[in-house]
Design a protein around this nucleic acid. Structure first.
Lengths: 173, 173
DNA sequence: ATATGAATGTTATATCATAACACGTCAAGG
DNA sequence: CCTTGACGTGTTATGATATAACATTCATAT
């Protein structure tokens, strides 16, 4: 069952079991981008050229990028080349739920489930730096329970894990 | 020594139900510090004056401190006044499990359960900036399960939540 | 006492992030 | 029309966080 070019029909790397698998990433990119555009249109948020391009860049790389990495690419394409240009676009994407901030890496990554109201957990390979967005509803539920015991009201979470992805585990052995 | 509210008998703010409660924090400080010293002695790690003082500072504040905050206090007491002094001591404490890094705040906080091999989750109040270290064994277990499904091997985690502590929820209402 | 490695101190610089203001665009109301 | 106000973008400048590299001191074991 190769996911090679035969249309992923709504799946692709948005399904978590492909997070670390080889796959035709262009499907994920176009799929997610299309959904983001639809969501923006629906909500009235303005997915302008810079913002859209930043999202594309994050999707193309399929890994976490620092704001300055993004900025460099933007500048090379004729957009502004000062930090706020990148930070503002990234902030917009995060606010809209189109991207996530990975604090451990001081970096940003495209959200693979825009609009799906999910609780992301990031699995960061310390060797190859790939970042997978794992489904974390159960994790979030446990965290909510722990917070509730203390009377704490959670608004936003950052759940991140550093370790080895399947491929790099093999190489380490 | 002697304090007004006498003795928490081995408990104090190391018990999670006191995380947000008023309490005589000097007990937590001395208790945790003593345990850290014992652990260091047992493992051969050298809890030198700077390192010990940094741990004390973190304990005294009972909140997350930035490296430069710590550095300022160190410098005022005659220790070195350059960033590496603080960063190295903090790194040692984190490596030993005597402190944790709170990435969301670019800050560090004393561990309230040194040597207990726990999975901390940090609850950060966005209003008063207090940070509570919540027990998160269940959270960690859920995260391990999610990672296992993807074949990812977790080594370290950062689980953080931003929201409102009980006191600030009251004020907000 | 002295060789060794660890810890500390220092200089310098790298990296990440935001405040504040200027300019252009575009749509709503005069 | 043409103004006005909100928003987005671009710019300058600076602030905040973090580490590399090297010099010096200290503890310890011989």
């Amino acid at each position: 069952m190769s996911d090679d070019s035969s249309s992923v029909a709504g799946h692709g790397c948005t399904t978590s079991d492909l997070a670390f698998a080889d796959h035709d990433h262009s499907h994920c990119t176009s799929d997610v981008l299309a959904r983001a555009e639809a969501l923006a249109k629906a909500s009235g948020a303005r997915l302008t050229p810079v913002r859209r391009r930043v999202l594309e860049i994050l999707l193309e790389e399929h890994k976490a990028l620092g704001a300055y990495d993004v900025l460099q690419r933007l500048a090379a394409e004729g957009f502004g080349n000062q930090p706020p240009v990148a930070y503002r676009a990234l902030e917009f994407l995060v606010d809209q739920g189109f991207a996530h901030r990975v604090r451990r890496l001081n970096a940003f990554t495209a959200c693979m489930h825009p609009g799906e109201a999910h609780a992301p957990a990031f699995l960061i390979c310390k060797t190859c730096a790939i970042v997978a967005e794992a489904p974390a509803e159960a994790v979030r539920a446990a965290l909510d329970a722990a917070a509730k015991d203390l009377g704490f009201a959670i608004e936003r979470t950052n759940i991140e894990a550093l370790g080895l992805c399947p491929a790099c585990q093999g190489q380490a052995a």
